[in-house]
Design a binder for these strands. Structure first.
Length: 504
DNA sequence: TTAGGGTTAG
């Protein structure tokens, strides 16, 4: 009975049944309820039950690992894994592939070789699942030799192992190797084709990807979406949008992934009209509400200029996570609506969602653009002390921008001099832009020097300096600079705030 | 009752 509820994902019925029968509870019934909580992102409940279980088995542990992985908590996963080993629970193959998949794309991926040697030491089979996970892990850390060694060690390779090898080589950038593997693999399915195509996309070979795409016989929603998203990643937004009617014509219905990618394409070509059409397509499609898709809609409306529509989609969301809030707050910041950005920020923290570094880039830039110096200073301090978010280059750049726009150039310079990290191009550009705005020759040259020390040839440096020289009547310096620009063939660019350009 | 290879947001 419990298994039926699990299949139907009916958490209520399952818990009622579970609560009503305390005597018939066993490890399996506990595990099923935990799995249900995990499936529904209610990790706290899962955790509570896990803690009060009289006895646990390896499935209980694995299910908790799954929950921690799904909530993007690689440190939690690793902690549980260590605890599991310490309490003398033998991890099985499920455990290993879960732990591995949790550390992909995180700084913990350096543990991959250790996990591998653990697998060897305890004598677990380099089975299909473990093998694929290890291959992904070695691709992630960029080790092609270990990647192919693991592949060789997998007994009874199946098509997924071959696909993982293709993806792995592509991820490392060994394109010819990936293509060679694809050419010799014993059989191919739609995933193999899509992996190859995606590899070309990741390696910025979009035309080659399109060539692969054209050869796919039975394209499905994933292959169509991957191609659309590939064009978006390559900034070829019109081609991304053109693919959509072809997809519909071929009889493949789009899903929430497809629509998110299309919305991104609309943002890329700043087409509110197309964005609205995609929005109505979403509504007609009957796809259930999805937090990512709705956030993409908010983003599209904000970036295409209709901030009120963005807010109305945002308000309609029954679930909001950090990214959705950041999207909305960033939208207000971009539109120069500092007060509304700050109000939303307050609502965000009140609703229990913790802000991250992205939130504060928006908040600080909103303050900068709104001229809210004191508020900006307070938020900058609160970021570190109250929210434990470490200040990064972007945050300093926002603060420099904040002071700079208001003409407090000395304070901006003091801030840069006191930075615990090395000022990067964004920070220097913010100062330079402020110097351009207020025609400060001395500090402008100081900023230009900072940029040149980074060995960056930024055209904007020259154009801002030109402007300052011109305004100060420093024609000799201007002529010298022009000569230098000619020599270096630097093209003149508009000098704007770097923070602004980051937001657009 | 738990896991792999291909597509989405700030």
């Amino acid at each position: 009975m419990l298994t039926t509820h699990l299949h139907n994902n009916s958490i209520k019925d399952a818990t009622v049944l579970f609560e009503l029968n305390p005597t018939s509870r066993n490890i399996v019934s506990y595990n099923i309820i935990i799995a249900l909580y995990v499936k529904n992102d209610r990790l706290r409940h899962a955790q509570k039950l896990f803690d009060q279980m009289p006895l646990r088995d390896v499935v209980s542990w694995n299910t908790m690992l799954l929950g921690l992985r799904n909530t993007k908590n690689p440190h939690g996963v690793y902690g549980y894994f260590l605890q599991m080993i310490r309490t003398s629970f033998s991890p099985n193959e499920y455990t290993i592939s879960l732990v591995l998949s949790a550390v992909f794309n995180t700084e913990l991926n350096l543990l991959v070789p250790q996990i591998h040697s653990f697998v060897v030491r305890v004598g677990l089979n380099p089975s299909l699942f473990v093998g694929s996970a290890l291959m992904r892990g070695y691709a992630d850390v960029g080790d092609p030799f270990a990647l192919s060694r693991v592949f060789d060690e997998v007994l009874d390779k199946d098509i997924s192992s071959w696909n993982a090898l293709v993806s792995g080589y592509m991820k490392i950038g060994l394109i010819r190797e990936a293509q060679r593997v694809f050419d010799v693999m014993p059989e191919r399915n739609i995933v193999s084709w899509t992996s190859l195509m995606n590899g070309y996309i990741d390696n910025k070979m979009i035309n080659k990807a399109r060539g692969v795409f054209n050869k796919i016989n039975q394209k499905n929603v994933v292959s169509w979406t991957a191609m659309i998203s590939g064009y978006v990643q390559s900034q070829r937004f019109i081609e991304a949008l053109r693919l959509f009617p072809l997809m519909l014509k071929s009889g493949i219905p789009p899903n929430h992934f497809t629509f998110s990618s299309l919305l991104d394409a609309c943002v890329g070509c700043c087409s509110l009209l197309t964005g609205q059409q995609v929005h109505s397509g979403v509504l007609k499609s009957g796809i259930p509400d999805d937090i990512v898709l709705l956030s993409s809609l908010v983003d599209m409306y904000a970036k295409c200029g209709d901030i009120d529509a963005a807010f109305s989609v945002f308000e309609s969301m029954s679930n909001k996570n950090m990214v959705s809030w950041n999207t909305m707050i960033g939208g207000y910041a971009r539109h120069g609506l500092a007060k509304r950005a700050l109000d939303e920020f307050k609502r965000m923290t009140k609703s229990g969602i913790m802000p991250d570094e992205v939130t504060f880039v928006s908040i600080l830039s909103a303050c900068a653009r709104g001229g809210l110096i004191q508020e900006g200073e307070e938020q900058f301090n609160a970021m570190v002390t109250e929210y434990g978010v470490q200040a990064r280059g972007e945050h300093y750049a926002c603060m420099v921008d904040l002071y700079g726009r208001a003409g407090h150039l000395e304070e901006a310079v003091e801030l840069i001099k006191g930075m615990p990290l090395k000022p990067d191009i964004v920070v220097w550009s913010a100062l330079l832009a402020a110097c351009g705005l207020h025609s400060s020759l001395e500090l402008g040259e100081f900023a230009a020097e900072g940029i040149n020390k980074l060995k960056n040839e930024h055209p904007v440096v020259y154009s801002v300096l030109m402007k300052i020289y011109g305004e100060k009547g420093a024609w000799n310096s201007a002529m010298e600079l022009r000569e230098m620009m000619k020599k270096k063939k630097v093209q003149k660019q508009n000098a704007g705030s770097s923070v602004e350009s980051r937001l657009s």
